[in-house]
Design a protein around this nucleic acid. Structure first.
Lengths: 332, 332
DNA sequence: TTGTAAGCGTTATCAG
DNA sequence: CTGATAACGCTTACAA
């Protein structure tokens, strides 16, 4: 006796409809041709049985799985949340599915990738910096496309989509200079974030080009708390900069709160602050934080375009999407 | 000639290792017995070829797919982001995968569920309120377990995990009364959120039991902006309540900003505010918003426990997890 | 401990 | 337009 809880198969439908299994397949796959009469019988039988086509066998036959793996960091960081949202949206519109992994260590990343591979995902999109050389190598050998999202990846065969961090860094510096700042500060992101480093690069190089070589800086890890701590450090070490650029919004918000409430520093009167990400909270009345908007929706679309292109060319591609400075009260 | 870009299969490995395909299967599935010698040959051949076991055939054989579908709302709402994080974490520890769908309309939800089903997910977890009767029915017929996350679901055969919204609502009222408030206000969530309704229920009933029948209220949609608008409305209509409970934190934060900056109302001197979710931002210096922590990690674990239990009992279960009031400066 | 062979539920090919 | 039939890459008896 068969298992009662087995889902109905195309064969079950075929039997009930009095047609061949292939007829059922053709009816649902929309390939090949089926007479209107047959289709009607099949459809009737199918929903009498509550039939749901099984996607797995098709994948085994070599069709694309329509699943992509997305590897991101922790959702506490609103940037990752937005990335997930944008990518999920874009993919679902195309009928693709998203297999997510939230990860916080290198080891876990490799693990997550290996797990996803077992399900034969069509591609891997990683918003995380680190892929070990071993993983990168074995990945490129499989020929499965990998897109680094907002992370320049030196690994060969890895495509990437990035916001133009360096130009943004330069813009931040220019904006603060225009506003009359003479002393500058920067709050770094985690060491392993290429994006954060590029922001620093643009910022510091621009300032150097304009005769400023002494930038006060402190290190953070992209969290609110680390931003608060960094601000404390910067202002304890001296009188504090007049222009502060932070590698992301969360740290900028933490810094703002500490500046205003603990250190009694006025924003923007005593110091102008700029962040990066245009997190929702940046627009809140309590902050009005100037920030760079990364246009994640466009980056998501670019990601899909890269994957589409890769299918024919097998070439890895690097795209850069400009970030837009939204000047708000924090730097007015 | 075979497709060059085909991934290596267990048969390829077997051929290279000079053993049977089943030997390879046994080596990787850890069932059955393999001699140390054979295993060594197999492993060597496998990573020479870059072999990755394919999970799909096993699923077709009736094994569990180790994938669960998660349906949530938009990640702009930090609550959903935390749910995703917690669930993903808990599942990945068990070697399970998460197929996500972010959804904002009923129609899209049914669609997302149907798509997931094609991949033979082991279960569906929905943090969204609405499942149409049709979907619910066809779902229960398939026997696939469904867990409503923080959404009481009247549909039969649907399990759920909820934070104790009603008790929390009562606690909020009690807390505000103890503090000496006499006039109360509430900002509602979306109409279709059972959780938000239960919070209101607890809040209003407790107050009624203590002689307060007149509660000023306005409607929001869980967003910061809607909270700001609701506050404006409440204070324009009268002198404003002394105790304000909001169906979630985002709305409470919006209300706080509007109260302080637009209306010049002091918190907590003129009005005490309580939110729900214990969003990260609630703990920020600029807000110090009292809030209920839902202990999402526990709820995630309960979800897995329910699924585990369901496997043997086929019984749907309802669990309630207490929410903890974190009293901060906004209601001090 | 091994290998052989029969499925799993589709799609793809090819006669009718 | 339709229906057999052979894959797809595994797991799982069963036999050796």
């Amino acid at each position: 006796m068969k298992n009662i809880h087995r889902l109905p198969t195309s064969t079950d439908v075929a039997r009930l409809a009095g047609v061949s299994q292939s007829a059922v397949s053709r009816t649902f796959s929309r390939r090949g041709s089926v007479s209107e009469q047959t289709r009607a019988k099949v459809v009737a039988a199918a929903d009498q049985l509550g039939y749901r086509p099984n996607a797995l066998p098709a994948i085994m036959q070599g069709q694309r799985s329509q699943m992509i793996a997305l590897v991101t960091g922790r959702m506490q960081n609103p940037f990752y949340a937005r990335v997930l949202q944008a990518l999920t949206n874009a993919l679902q519109q195309q009928g693709q599915q998203v297999l997510v992994s939230c990860v916080d260590s290198d080891h876990a990343l490799d693990d997550a990738i290996n797990q996803s591979m077992r399900y034969r995902v069509d591609a891997i999109v990683s918003a995380l910096a680190v892929i070990t050389p071993a993983t990168a190598a074995s990945l490129s050998r499989t020929g499965i496309p990998v897109v680094a999202f907002n992370n320049v990846q030196n690994a060969p065969g890895v495509s990437s989509v990035n916001s133009d961090n360096e130009t943004a860094g330069r813009q931040a510096a220019a904006h603060l200079m225009t506003r009359g700042c003479q002393h500058f500060g920067f709050i770094h992101g985690p060491q392993d974030s290429p994006a954060a480093r590029q922001r620093w690069q643009g910022f510091s190089v621009y300032l150097a080009e304009h005769g400023v070589n002494d930038i006060a800086s402190a290190c953070g890890d992209f969290s609110y708390q680390s931003g608060a701590a960094a601000a404390l450090q910067l202002w304890r070490e001296g009188s504090g900069p007049q222009g502060l650029f932070c590698a992301n919004d969360l740290m900028a918000l933490g810094a703002m709160d500490t500046l205003r409430q603990t250190l009694g520093v006025k924003i923007p009167d005593d110091v102008a602050v700029i962040g990066y990400d245009n997190t929702d909270a940046s627009a809140w009345d309590a902050y009005q934080l100037s920030s760079f908007d990364q246009d994640i929706e466009t980056m998501a679309k670019e990601t899909l375009a890269i994957l589409e292109h890769y299918r024919s060319s097998k070439q890895s591609i690097v795209r850069t999407v400009p970030a837009l400075l939204l000047a708000r009260a924090s730097s007015a």
